[in-house]
């Protein structure tokens, strides 16, 4: 349930930025969430929309872009994606092992993001 704390942080930021830009209404927001983050995107969207109620962002669309994983192997230098197209949690295990040489020394370069990227608003 850390999705609730993340959603609260999103809402706080969105309203803060919107106010500073003299927005009257927020139409949509866009988030980037990495596929290796331990965040359930449906839950985040649900909580954000629930917390938007009664604010200028009520009813705003929550767009979420999934950022694909990318790793770099510290042993053989392999660079790239390392997991199949699936959210299967057991396959996350594979994400920590180099697909080329099997070394566990992989550095995650992409796929752990949790970012607020865009707010579309009206003034």
């Amino acid at each position: 349930m850390h999705e609730f704390s993340i959603a609260s942080e999103i809402v706080r930021n969105v309203l803060d930025v919107a106010e500073k830009n003299s927005a009257r209404k927020i139409l949509s927001i866009r988030l980037d969430i990495g596929e290796l983050s331990l965040i359930n995107v449906e839950q985040v969207a649900h909580w954000v929309q629930a917390l938007f109620k009664g604010t200028m962002a009520e009813g705003a669309e929550v767009k979420i872009k999934t950022i694909k994983a990318a790793v770099q192997c510290q042993s053989c230098g392999y660079k790239g994606r390392n997991i199949p197209d699936s959210r299967d949690i057991v396959q996350h295990f594979a994400a920590f092992i180099c697909p080329k040489c099997g070394s566990p020394g992989v550095k995650i370069e992409k796929g752990r993001e949790c970012m607020l990227r865009k707010i579309q608003a009206e003034r």
Binding site: I6, E9, I10, N13, V17, A18, N21, A23, R24, K25, L27, E113, C114, M115, L116, R117, K118, I119, Q120, A121, E122, R123
Partner: peptide
Amino acid sequence: GPEIFDIELEKDLLAK
């Protein structure tokens, strides 16, 4: 009419 505008951000939500 209302002016629609985009605000681009790079706000890392776990940074705090």
